[in-house]
C-alpha cells in the first residue's frame, strides 16, 4: 500500500518542480519580451533626430540612441502597429496605396528606390524626396516618423518579423505584413512609377 508519507513528499516535490519549471520557462522565453514605450523622453526624441546620411542621401547611420534602445521601431509590435495607424492617419495611402503604389512608388515589391535602411526611410519621410514626396517634418514628431518608417519597412520586408502586424479590420487588398509580401512579389520586379528616377535625390 502506498503510504501517506510518499504522497506528501510527492506534493512537496511537485510544488518545487512547479516553481522550477516556471522559472526556467520564464528565462527561456525571455527573448519574447516586448517592452512598450508609450512616452519617449524628449531628450531621446531629440537624439533620434541626429541620424547621419551620406551625401547621396541613401546610406547612413542611425543615432547611437537607436541601438541603445534595442532598435525598437523595427521589432516592437506596439510601435509597428502605431506606425500602421500613422500610415492611414497621415494619408500615405493617397499616393502609395496600401503599399502597392500609385502616384508614389510601391513598397510591397521589396524594391527600394532609396534602399531599405531605416535611416533612408526616415529621411524620405522627414525631408521628402523628388517627384512630389512631401516632407513630413512639420506634420509628425520624430518618434512618429520612426514608427512609420518601421512599419513601411515591414510592408516591403522579404522575411517577416514575428512582431509584424497582420490584416486590418478593412477590406483586404494585399498580403498582410506578417506574410512577408515582398517574398511573394519581389520577383515580379519593381513597380516603379518614375522610371527616370535615379538613385541620387
Amino acid at each position: 500500500m502506498l503510504p501517506a508519507v510518499s504522497n506528501k513528499s510527492f506534493g512537496l516535490f511537485f510544488s518545487a518542480g512547479f516553481l522550477l519549471a516556471a522559472l526556467t520557462g520564464a528565462i527561456g522565453l525571455g527573448w519574447l519580451r516586448e517592452p512598450r514605450q508609450y512616452r519617449t523622453d524628449p531628450p531621446i526624441s531629440a537624439a533620434l533626430e541626429g541620424f547621419r546620411l551620406m551625401p547621396n542621401a541613401i546610406g547612413g547611420a542611425p543615432p547611437e540612441v537607436y541601438f541603445a534602445l534595442g532598435k525598437p521601431y523595427e521589432g516592437t509590435a506596439y510601435d509597428l502597429s502605431q506606425g500602421k495607424r500613422l500610415y492611414s492617419w497621415f494619408g500615405c495611402a493617397s499616393c502609395h496605396g496600401e503599399g502597392e503604389g500609385g502616384a508614389g512608388p510601391a513598397f510591397l515589391d521589396g524594391w527600394w528606390l532609396y534602399g531599405p535602411s531605416m535611416v533612408s526611410i526616415v529621411a524620405s519621410i522627414r525631408d521628402g524626396r523628388p517627384h512630389d514626396m512631401p516632407a513630413f517634418r512639420d506634420k509628425m514628431t520624430i518618434d512618429q516618423i520612426w514608427q512609420l518608417a518601421g512599419y513601411v519597412k515591414s510592408i516591403g520586408a522579404y522575411s517577416a518579423k514575428l512582431t509584424a502586424p497582420s490584416r486590418n479590420d478593412a477590406p483586404q487588398t494585399r498580403p498582410a505584413e506578417n506574410r512577408a509580401p515582398a517574398a511573394i512579389l519581389f520577383n515580379e520586379g519593381s513597380a516603379s512609377v518614375h522610371p527616370d528616377q535615379g538613385p541620387s535625390p
Partner: peptide, 28 residues
C-alpha cells in the same frame, strides 16, 4: 510566464474582437 515577461493579455478575460483582433491587439 507571459505575465512575468510583460506580454500578458490585456484585452480582458472576454477578449472582445476587434480589440483583441489583429489591428488593435499588437504583439502576441
Amino acid at each position: 510566464i507571459s505575465f512575468a515577461l510583460d506580454t500578458a493579455p490585456d484585452v480582458g478575460w472576454f477578449a472582445y474582437a476587434p480589440l483583441s483582433g489583429p489591428e488593435y491587439g499588437a504583439g502576441k
